[in-house]
Design a protein around this nucleic acid. Structure first.
Length: 471
RNA sequence: GUCCCCAUCGUCUAGCCUGGCCUAGGACAUUGCCCUUUCAAGGCAGUAACACGGGUUCAAAUCCCGUUGGGGACACCA
C-alpha cells in the first residue's frame, strides 16, 4: 500500500474562507485517518492577484482551526522552472504547440462565438502550424485529445464520463512564461506524489482537462474527489453578501475553532444521527462514502447552536483561555490580571449555559469583575425601591452573621426570610439580583454569590440597599 | 449556447448502493407545555419533506428513463 498523500491548495486571494476550511478539513481528516501526509500548497501563479498578506492570512486561519500540515507551505512561484521544463517536455513529445493568437483576438472570437450561440472553445488555428520557434511573446498550448472520452471515478460522485471532443487546447504556458493553473496543478500533484486530489465541486470540469496532461507527461493519474459547494441562504454560491465568509471573522465573533470544524464537517458529511464529534471521532469515522454529493446551504443558526454546545462541554479552563483576549479588548485587562485562572474557569462555569459565543460570554461575565457593580438604571429603578430596602437590610444582617459563605446556609437563610416576610421569592430575589449583578437576568443567585465571594456579596448588597433607600 | 454535477421537513441530514423493517428517523429553527428566584440551560409534545411524470416489480424515498428546478464549468483567473 502506498502512503496516502493529499493536499490543500488555496490561491492567495484575500483570506481563508469557510469553503476552503472545509476542503482542507476533509483532506486533513483523510490524511490523519490513513496515517498519510497532508500538504499545504499555495497556488500563486497569477502575479496580478497574489499578495503576501493573503498567504499569511491562510496560514493564520489554518493554525487557528488547528489543521496542521506535514509539508509546505509550497509556493508555486518558487517552482516555475519545474513547470517550464515539463511544458517543454510536452512540446518535444508533440503534445503541445506554440500559439501566436493574441489575447485580445481570442477574447473577441470567444465573444463572437458566444453571441452566435456556439461553444466558446478555442478554434485550434495554431494547432497544426508547427511553429517551432517562439519569436516574441507567445503561449504554449496543450494538444488535448479530441476523440474518445475521459472517465474519472470520483470518490464522492462516482463514475463521470466526459467527451473529449468538447475539450479545449488549453494554454499551459502564458506568453509571460508563467504556467496556468490547470498545468501547474498537474505538475505539482504529480511531482508531490499526491494520491488523492480532493477539492471543491467547482473543479469537477477541470478534471477532464487535467487527466490527459498527467497521461501525456507519463505520470500516474491520482484519484479525484469533488466536494459539494457551500451555498448561501438563497442557494447561490456562498459569498460576502450572505454574511461573514472569512474563517477569522468567526474567531472575532466568538466562535470556538472546534465548533467551526464540527459544523463544517456536518455540512456534507454525516455519521448516523450524531451531531457532535471529537476530533478523534472524526478521524476514526470519516469516510468518503458518507460525504454528501449535493450542495449544502450554510446555516449560521445551526453553527451558533454547535458553538453553544462546545462552550457547554469544553473544559472550562480552555474556554477561559479563549475568552482572555476578548476580555482584554473590552478594557478588562487589569481586572483579568488580578484574578486567578481557576476563578476565571469558575466564572465560565457560571455563565456557559447562557452564552452562545465568546462575545456573548464577555457580556455575561462583566459584572463579576471589580468590587462595585454598574447598575442598569432601569433595573435599579424597578427593583431597588424604598419598599424593599428594609427587607434587604434584614437579609444583609443575616448574611453578615455568617463568618463564611456557604451556598446551602445562605440559601436557607434567604428562604426563611422570604417566609417570615410573607413575600414571594421573586420579590426579594430580583432586587438582590440587581444589587449583585446590576441586571435583571443572571445565573442562580447563590451561584453568583459563590463566585463573588462573601465580601463582595455583602459589599454590593449594602450598595444596593443604599440606592434603594435613596430612591 | 455547450458540457458536468445535484434533487428527502424552511435548513443540515438518516434511510437509497444491497427495493419490503418508512403510517420516512434525528438535529437546528419554530410553536406549546413542564421545570423555575430572573435569564438561560434542560425535559416533554407539536407543525413540517421523499420535486414532477412515466416505467420495472407482488412491492419504490430506494432501481431505470424523461421533465422541471437548482448549482458549477467553459480565460494567457485559480
Amino acid at each position: 500500500m502506498t502512503q496516502v498523500r493529499v493536499r490543500f491548495a488555496p490561491s492567495p486571494t484575500g483570506f481563508l474562507h469557510i469553503g476552503g476550511v472545509r476542503t482542507a478539513l476533509f483532506n486533513w481528516l483523510f490524511a490523519r485517518q490513513q496515517k498519510g501526509v497532508f500538504i499545504l500548497r499555495i497556488e500563486d501563479t497569477d502575479q496580478s492577484r497574489s499578495i503576501d498578506e493573503s498567504i499569511q492570512a491562510i496560514i493564520a486561519g489554518m493554525k487557528w482551526v488547528g489543521l496542521d500540515w506535514d509539508e509546505g507551505p509550497y509556493r508555486q512561484t518558487e517552482r516555475i522552472d519545474l513547470y517550464r521544463s515539463h511544458a517543454l517536455q510536452l512540446l518535444e513529445k508533440g503534445r503541445a504547440y506554440w500559439c501566436v493568437c493574441k489575447a485580445e483576438e481570442l477574447d473577441a472570437r470567444r465573444k463572437e462565438a458566444e453571441a452566435r450561440g456556439l461553444s466558446p472553445k478555442y478554434d485550434g488555428r495554431c494547432r497544426d502550424r508547427g511553429l517551432t520557434n517562439h519569436a516574441g511573446a507567445v503561449a504554449l498550448r496543450f494538444k488535448a485529445p479530441q476523440e474518445g472520452e475521459t472517465v474519472i471515478d470520483d470518490l464522492i460522485k462516482g463514475k463521470i464520463v466526459f467527451d473529449n471532443n468538447v475539450q479545449d487546447d488549453l494554454i499551459i504556458l502564458r506568453s509571460n512564461g508563467y504556467p496556468t493553473y490547470n498545468f501547474s496543478v498537474v505538475v505539482d500533484d504529480a511531482l508531490m506524489n499526491i494520491t488523492h486530489v480532493v477539492r471543491g465541486d467547482d473543479h469537477l470540469t477541470n478534471t477532464p482537462r487535467q487527466v490527459p496532461i498527467f497521461q501525456a507527461l507519463g505520470f500516474p493519474v491520482p484519484q479525484f474527489g469533488h466536494l459539494p459547494m457551500i451555498l448561501g441562504s438563497d442557494k447561490s454560491r456562498l459569498s460576502k453578501r450572505h454574511g461573514a465568509t472569512s474563517i477569522m471573522a468567526y474567531k472575532d465573533m466568538g466562535y470556538l475553532p472546534d465548533a467551526m470544524l464540527n459544523y463544517l464537517v456536518r455540512l456534507g458529511w454525516s455519521h448516523g444521527d450524531q451531531e457532535i464529534f471529537t476530533r478523534q471521532e472524526l478521524i476514526e469515522q470519516f469516510s468518503w462514502k458518507k460525504v454528501q454529493s449535493s450542495a449544502a446551504v450554510f446555516n449560521p443558526e445551526k453553527l451558533l447552536w454547535v458553538n453553544a454546545e462546545y462552550i457547554k462541554v469544553s473544559p472550562p479552563s480552555q474556554v477561559a483561555q479563549a475568552l482572555l483576549p476578548l476580555l482584554e479588548t473590552v478594557g478588562l485587562r487589569d481586572e483579568v490580571q488580578a484574578v486567578s485562572a481557576g476563578w476565571l474557569a469558575q466564572l465560565v462555569v457560571l455563565v456557559k449555559e447562557r452564552a452562545k459565543t465568546l462575545v456573548e460570554m464577555v457580556d455575561w461575565v462583566r459584572p463579576y469583575f471589580g468590587q462595585a457593580v454598574t447598575c442598569d438604571e432601569e433595573a435599579a429603578e424597578k427593583f431597588l425601591t424604598p419598599a424593599i430596602a428594609p427587607i434587604l437590610g434584614k437579609l444583609l444582617t443575616r448574611f453578615e452573621a455568617f463568618p463564611a459563605f456557604s451556598k446551602q446556609q445562605w440559601e436557607e437563610a434567604f428562604k426563611q426570610l422570604v417566609d417570615e416576610e410573607g413575600v414571594k421569592m421573586g420579590q426579594l430575589a430580583q432586587p438582590v439580583r440587581v444589587a449583585l449583578t446590576g441586571r435583571t437576568a443572571s445565573p442562580g443567585l447563590f451561584d453568583v454569590m459563590e463566585v463573588l465571594g462573601r465580601d463582595r456579596t455583602l459589599f454590593r448588597l449594602r450598595q444596593g440597599i443604599e440606592r434603594a433607600s435613596r430612591a
